Amino acid sequence: MKAGRHRNFYKDIALDQAMEVFWRNGYPGTSLSDLTTAMGINKPSLYSAFGNKEQLYKSALDNYVQKHGVIHAEHLIAVDKCLSDRIQCYLTSIAEMVTDPNLPGGCFVCVSTCELGSSCIPTDASQTIFKINEVTKHSLTEFFNKEMSEGNLTSERSPAMLANYILSLQFGLSVMARNGASLTELKEIIKVSTDQF
């Protein structure tokens, strides 16, 4: 039992390390050697614990969503702030993450989404990326639906359109961060972008 817990612990660490390699280099830019070096394991151990490169990539994406994705949404449901402030805090939280010097930079999901335009991402992995983005869009759409029904938002634009707008901002912040934009610059963009709410 104790040994099993240790194996799971080290597997979690190895998955974090693989996630950061994929996040930094993208799927086609990451070799098995890059992964085994970062994870501190050999190829047979990688296959045994995680499957092939594509399966590891999908696990890394899911790991990213749980550790660096869903946490931002808590700002949208804060009870002590108006809608505009909540959206601003949500996007600022994302901006802080994508500019964190201790992380690879940008958003792993955004990096992966940008690679979908080519044939470098295998089909199953592509579906994982599409699903993550669809879940995010659905959650944001439901959020705006709720805000409208509660009278916190009056807009001629549909909840789905507003969700796409916020998702576009998230991706834009990620690309800007990967291009060297500072947190201060991203906060200025967020302020201008959320003044309408």
Rank of each mutant, 00 (worst) to 15 (best):
H138M: 08
I94L: 09
A177G: 07
K58I: 15
G51V: 08
E54H: 05
N133F: 04
D80V: 08
C82G: 14
T92F: 00
I77F: 11
M176Y: 14
P101A: 03
G180F: 07
E147A: 15
S119C: 14
H68E: 11
K53P: 00
S59W: 05
L153D: 11
S158W: 06
K131H: 10
S48D: 08
I87A: 04
T136W: 02
L169Q: 12
P101E: 09
E134P: 00
H72I: 00
N63D: 03
E156I: 05
P159Y: 13
Y90M: 08
D124G: 11
Q55I: 04
Q55R: 13
K146S: 05
A125L: 12
V175M: 13
V70N: 01
I77H: 07
I87Q: 08
S84R: 15
Y57K: 00
S149L: 09
K58Y: 03
M148I: 15
M176R: 15
K67L: 01
I121V: 14
K67N: 09
S84C: 10
R157L: 09
C114H: 12
G172Y: 08
Q170E: 14
V70Y: 04
G151Q: 13
A177V: 03
H138Q: 13
K81A: 13
T99R: 02
C114K: 14
A181D: 07
N164L: 14
V98F: 05
F171Y: 13
I121Q: 03
C89K: 13
I121E: 03
R157N: 10
H68K: 10
L103N: 10
S118G: 15
S155K: 11
N102F: 02
L169T: 12
S84D: 02
E134V: 00
V70R: 07
L140V: 05
S126K: 15
K137W: 04
N179H: 14
S48Y: 14
N179L: 11
E74W: 01
Y64I: 01
S139F: 05
T113M: 14
F108A: 12
L56D: 05
M97E: 12
F50Y: 14
Q170F: 03
G69N: 01
I71H: 03
D62E: 14
M148Y: 04
T92Q: 12
M148V: 15
T136L: 02
S168K: 06
Q55M: 11
S126T: 10
S174D: 08
V79W: 01
F171L: 04
D100S: 11
S139G: 09
T141A: 06
D80N: 15
L169E: 07
V70L: 06
C82W: 04
L167T: 10
A95P: 02
S139Y: 05
V135I: 12
D85R: 12
S155A: 11
P122A: 02
C107A: 08
V175L: 13
